[in-house]
């Protein structure tokens, strides 16, 4: 299978005025195959979101490269970046903040469709279908982000990420605000899309049990570094690192 995403020695340093720079991400190298479901787990502050933001070109890496389907996109811009975003989408960690408070959820979901040549009518129709796909009625297109629950907003955010049929979706804690049944439904949907369209997922998550069910491979991050990598079952049953052990013991 081909690789869709590859990162090489990604590093992010946040400079601080008092001289003690924060090394949020350090030497992160991994690759993701087409249609693969890769999880990143790690405690809060371990640098998961920072990695995701660097891959999505929302944060400039201090060092390292990001490759999408073999092409270096670290310095992409303009039209090239627009094309990159048709192949890669992201579901943000805080779904309510990821929708403009002055636009409806429908506006947010159809924005990418309109930007890529769909007519208003087509976009509205597709938005309706996307909402239905994520288990939301069509009336949610008219709602504002503060008028829906966190879980509903999260599903709308997933609908938005799927709108232009990307090849790679980064899901940053995308199911954390959902209750168990809805979470199962959403994961089911993601699984279906992966089988039908071969979408790859970078699945950032706290919940190790969920990762075990859903993902093909898992990366364990600690203080910005990758400390362990492997098949979820193996890692959970036989962790090599003390940190991974601690992380697993704390949930199970």
């Amino acid at each position: 299978m081909d690789t869709i995403l590859q990162t090489a020695h990604l590093k992010k340093v946040f400079p601080r005025k008092d001289g003690e720079d924060i090394v949020a991400v350090d030497d992160v190298t991994f690759s993701l195959k087409k249609g693969e479901k890769l999880a990143i787990i790690g405690e809060s502050g371990s640098g998961k979101t920072t990695v995701a933001r660097m891959i999505a070109h929302l944060l400039e890496p201090t060092a390292g490269q990001v490759m999408l389907a073999g092409e270096d996109i670290t310095n992409a811009g303009g039209a090239k970046l627009k094309e990159v975003y048709t192949r890669m989408q992201m579901v943000f960690q805080n779904p309510v903040d990821s929708f403009d408070p002055r636009c409806t959820l429908g506006d947010g979901i159809s924005e990418s469709l309109l930007n890529h040549g769909k007519s208003k009518r087509q976009a509205a129709e597709m938005t309706k279908n996307l909402l239905a796909l994520c288990g939301l009625g069509e009336e949610f297109a008219q709602r504002y982000p503060h008028e829906v629950s966190g879980g509903q907003c999260q599903r709308a955010a997933i609908a938005r990420a799927l709108a232009i049929e990307p090849e790679l979706v980064i899901l940053d804690e995308a199911t954390s605000a959902l209750d168990v049944t809805v979470q199962a439904e959403v994961l089911d949907l993601l699984n279906r899309l992966q089988e039908d369209r071969g979408i790859a997922y970078l699945f950032i998550c706290h919940d190790i049990a969920l990762v075990q069910d859903f993902c093909d491979r898992v990366i364990v991050m600690h203080e910005g570094k990758i400390v362990e990598e492997g098949i979820p079952d193996e890692i959970i049953n036989n962790p090599q690192q003390a940190y991974t052990k601690k992380l697993i013991d704390s949930v199970l």
Binding site: A56, Y85, F92, N94, D97, S98, F99, N115, R160
Partner: peptide
């Protein structure tokens, strides 16, 4: 720095839009 601005960028909206 708001997430929705980054979401708009990822939706392919240009600076003017």
């Amino acid at each position: 720095s708001a997430a929705f601005m980054q979401a708009a960028k990822m939706a392919g909206s240009g600076t003017c839009k």
